[in-house]
Design a protein around this nucleic acid. Structure first.
Lengths: 235, 235
DNA sequence: GTAGATTTGTGCGTATGTATC
DNA sequence: AGATACATACGCACAAATCTA
């Protein structure tokens, strides 16, 4: 045989997932069952599952099983993109799940990006962006608290950066800079994005400012690389 | 024990790499030697190496050994960015290694992006972008051959898209669209980028056109996620 | 250039730990 | 509490790629 055993098993299982034999979220057979079915040692079946987990196709939970992961989406990125807006236009139904919302002293990078002194307060907002029930992104945003005293309450009520900023008198804002790189999912992100550890993430670090140039948000977003495509607008 | 054996070994080796005990490009001890040193089975040492390889910290070559990987760089991305230009400004010394340069019928996506009919000819240019000796990107670009008959020779001589297009009468061009996502390195890319299979890549798919809107290049570039940060220009 | 030694990759078998059901 | 299922770890054997004398 040209291929190794575990790769053959991986190929077979991938094909079955692609064919719909196993649906997203569905549990795969146990390692023991797969080993019996393919006539191999359990370790060999495990090797195939490990590769699929590493590729983000499935995720495994100790004591529970291996489950088929979710599917991709696209998401435009430009100077004036908004998360909700972009996904709505792509025909998805976006939601935000808020994990944290509180006022804290700014971190070093946050202070620098927002033009604050060390120790100045920022509103920190963390959460998960979802579409059609599947998590697409994990975000952490910081807003200068002194300039935007009521923003925390606005975010809690509206769950929208645009709406909350409007209440604070910031009628418009634009992306000043965006830096992109690829990272592997750490346990924390993997859990919230329902991905396997090590899955490829697209990290976006951006600064939003008023048209006058006053920074109002420093945000980092980790997108599930398999589920999202960012599009840089033409201009 | 709080941690697993293989994680302890991984932590120890990472610390030694971080401390400079092992330099980038340097070979680590053999699996057998590591197993002896840490008093574990070879498989356990292998598990630690596999995790580090998966994280892109080292890369392994069968029959040869495990080698410490290279480190990051930054690279700006905008409407008018050029690869060479961006890296020069970042204080790096960029180079291109050309792997392929020939004229072929356009692929489906290439034809669509360039506004060609199926079967029309394109110049295909593939290669690796390097800085300071470390590979940063693998690229494949397609140019419409009918519109740019002498481009292939221009690319071979100048090794520069901008210069070769200028010879063909295209004095200026801009990025029309850029789509970004994160992928895992396949064996092919891993080899050319000197990364491990599965390492996170930043995939950029872009179309360049003349100011008049005539598409002149359809390019895909896979950046080593650990070595490159793309920056989306403010305007 | 080649034969042999070295080194990583694959596979099986067994045992035990740990989280989940 | 017991059964189930994934995770870790050891040991042995051989294959495949590489390096070296």
């Amino acid at each position: 045989m040209a291929e190794t055993l575990w790769r053959e098993i991986e190929t077979a299982l991938k094909a079955e997932i692609a064919s719909g034999r196993y649906q997203p979220g569905e549990k795969l057979p146990t390692e023991a069952a797969l080993a019996r079915r393919f006539g191999v040692n359990r370790h060999t079946a495990r090797r195939a599952l490990a590769a699929m987990a590493e590729a983000g196709l499935i995720l495994t939970r100790r004591g529970s099983g291996a489950f088929v992961a979710f599917r991709p989406a696209t998401y435009p990125l430009g100077r004036r993109t908004r998360f909700h807006q972009g996904l709505s236009e792509a025909g998805r139904s976006p939601k935000k799940e808020i994990l944290r919302l509180e006022t804290l002293p700014a971190g070093k990078r946050e202070a620098e990006a927002l033009g604050l002194a060390p120790g100045d307060l920022v509103h920190v907002w963390e959460g998960v962006g979802l579409a059609d029930g599947a998590p697409l992104s994990y975000f952490r945003a910081a807003f200068p608290a002194a300039r935007l005293p009521g923003l925390k309450e606005g975010l809690a009520e509206t769950r929208s950066v645009t709406a909350a900023l409007a209440r604070e008198g910031v009628a418009d804002y634009v992306r000043v800079s965006t830096r992109l790189s690829a990272e592997r999912a750490r346990p924390f992100e993997a859990r919230h994005l329902r991905l396997a550890e090590g899955a490829p993430l697209l990290l976006s670090v951006s600064v939003n400012a008023t048209p006058g140039g006053e920074p109002v948000e420093y945000g980092r977003t980790w997108f599930a690389g398999d589920r999202v495509v960012l599009e840089v607008a033409a201009g």
